[in-house]
Amino acid sequence: MDLETQAQIYLADQRGISQVGFFRSFHTFNFGHYFHESRTPFVNLQVFNDDTLKAGHRLKLKLEKNSEVIIIPIVGGLEFHNSLETGFLEVGQVQIFSALAATEYEIINPYETEEINFLQIWLNNDSVDFTSKIEVNAFDFEDKNTMLPIFSKNSQRGFIGKYDGRKKEEFTFEKSENDIFFFVLSGAFEVQDRLLHTRDGLSLSNFKMIDFEALSNDAIILMFELVLQPQ
């Protein structure tokens, strides 16, 4: 059966924003008081926030649903506190926190003068055997021009890659009914003939093959393979 391919670009300068004196968050999807009909969740990708926290402050969040909470430091390390663990997460690490509905967790900026920037990504998980757990994975950008795995859970996978200008990548998927989300952390890429700049996102559905090309040096991109209801 042929499935209709679909694509949507989420431009960085059209994201929602929440801001108080010590904290700023850009929302690729609807979050908190921000709502736009074009920014509904993509498959089970519920939240994709680009957060900046000032020195010495902390952020507390509470989940409404069972979720895989993925935290990726971008600038500066961060301290975290949740029901399972307290620790420190640094650039080059990714935390995957499987958290039950109503779980609270904190992110703390431990520095005296420096802001930190990090991504918070929530994937809903409706599987019947969902349990609370935590893991931390690492990646190394010394290994350039390839997609590095950062998580794999319930048939879902995440990757990050740092590329030289004009380097290309191609993916072929086993199934046509796939859902893929890209997010450019820095630089520029052409993904499936669509131009993306820093902090732009792109959702793709039902593409059997996907290719992209870095258009600037040291460009960084994230890719997520998603499923609607993990089993």
Rank of each mutant, 00 (worst) to 15 (best):
T131D: 12
N137T: 15
S18T: 13
N82R: 08
Q8L: 10
A55F: 10
L228E: 15
I108E: 06
F48G: 00
G77L: 09
S216M: 10
T52E: 13
G21M: 08
I74C: 05
N125K: 03
I221V: 15
S18Y: 12
E190F: 00
I150W: 01
N145R: 08
D164I: 06
S25L: 05
N206M: 06
N49K: 04
T5C: 09
S205L: 11
E115L: 07
S38Y: 10
F182N: 03
K65A: 08
S38T: 14
I134M: 13
L11V: 11
L202D: 01
L78F: 03
L45V: 07
E225Q: 14
Q229Y: 13
I74L: 15
F189G: 02
G16P: 05
P73T: 10
F35L: 04
F183R: 01
K167F: 14
I134L: 15
I96D: 00
L59S: 06
S176K: 14
G201E: 02
E90G: 10
V128I: 12
E174F: 14
F31D: 06
F31L: 08
R39H: 15
F22M: 09
K144P: 03
F151R: 00
I108N: 07
E213G: 00
N109F: 04
F182V: 06
Q19K: 15
G32E: 08
D200Q: 07
E114T: 09
D164N: 14
I107C: 03
M209D: 13
K54W: 05
E104P: 04
H36N: 14
L100V: 00
I107Q: 03
D218A: 11
L215K: 15
K65V: 04
Q8R: 13
V184L: 11
L196N: 03
F130W: 04
G187V: 07
L148H: 06
N125W: 02
A12E: 07
F48V: 00
V91N: 06
N49M: 06
V91S: 06
F48Q: 01
M223P: 02
F159D: 01
D2N: 09
G161P: 02
G92Q: 03
N145G: 07
D211Q: 13
F97Y: 14
R199V: 02
P41V: 05
T172M: 00
L3M: 07
E174A: 15
F130A: 08
D143F: 13
K133T: 14
I70N: 02
T113N: 10
E112R: 11
F171H: 07
S83C: 12
E37N: 11
F207C: 05
L202Y: 04
K175T: 14
L123M: 09
A101W: 00
Q229E: 13
D211W: 13
I121L: 09
N178Y: 09
G21Q: 10
Q95C: 00
A12R: 06
F80H: 04
D211N: 15
T131H: 13
Q192G: 01
T146E: 11
F224E: 01
I96V: 14
L119W: 10
T198P: 01
K153G: 00
Q6V: 12
E174S: 15
Q156H: 04
Q192C: 03
